[in-house]
Simulated scan of single mutants.
Amino acid sequence: MSKPHVFLVGPMGVGKSTIGRLLASELGLPFVDTDRVIEERTGADIPWIFDMEGEEGFRLRETNVLSDLCQMRAAVIATGGGIVTQEANIELMRNHGSVCYLRASLEQLAERTARDKKRPLLQVENPREKIAQILMEREPSYTSVANFTVNTDRHGPKAAVQEILQQLGRSRS
């Protein structure tokens, strides 16, 4: 297998971590969440990093973590929603694995993130509007980097995992 990793990309609240854990279990691979690795390495949570270093500082950390993970053994890697904002990250994912874009409707994303205070980009007066803006900006990158797309609106996490497994069978053969 020349591209061992499975990268999950998509907006915040789409289910990358939940689906990633289940998928890793099905594939017998370790699960890694890039945001958790950043927090472990810095000893600080994502909101604090955004406050202290801004989005630019956080994105640099994110690229460094992704680069390191690409050198490790095969894993299912859940990425932060903005990982596609950096061209270096897109190239890393394309070169080191299969990329699944997890997609959900604006309504679902707004509902799933409504009470989450740990998402720095949503600490604004109108989070739903912010999600819409982020989707509009990032959708082309999610689509272009992905080998395939799975819509999580219509699926529970287990059904999404089954669809990913089917897609991986097609994209890896």
Rank of each mutant, 00 (worst) to 15 (best):
Q166L: 04
M136Y: 02
I46G: 01
E125W: 02
L22D: 10
S144A: 15
A44H: 14
A78V: 05
K118R: 08
Q86M: 15
V76P: 01
V161N: 05
G10P: 00
Q71F: 01
G97N: 09
F148T: 03
S173C: 10
H5C: 03
Q71P: 01
V84E: 04
P11M: 15
R94I: 09
V161L: 08
I83H: 01
P30G: 11
A78S: 14
E129N: 03
V99S: 07
S25K: 12
V145K: 10
E111V: 04
R103V: 12
Q86W: 11
E139Q: 10
V65L: 11
L121E: 05
D68S: 08
L168M: 04
P120C: 05
D153C: 07
A24S: 03
D51T: 14
F58I: 10
E125N: 08
E87C: 02
E163F: 00
R61M: 13
T85V: 14
E163N: 02
G169K: 06
K117E: 08
P11C: 10
L102R: 00
L23A: 03
P140S: 11
L22S: 03
N151R: 11
D35C: 07
F148D: 04
A24T: 02
R41V: 05
F31I: 06
A132P: 02
L121N: 03
A104R: 00
G28H: 10
Q162D: 08
V161D: 06
R41K: 14
H5E: 09
L22Q: 12
H5Q: 11
G54F: 12
E137S: 09
G169D: 07
E40G: 04
E26H: 05
T152D: 04
I164F: 05
Y142S: 12
L23E: 09
T18Y: 05
G80F: 15
G169S: 06
T34N: 06
K3D: 13
E87S: 09
L122T: 02
P127L: 04
D33T: 10
E107S: 02
A114P: 01
P120Q: 08
K16D: 11
W48P: 00
D35S: 04
S173M: 14
Q123M: 11
E87P: 00
I131E: 02
M1T: 15
A44G: 03
S141N: 13
E107K: 10
R119C: 06
V76S: 07
I77C: 02
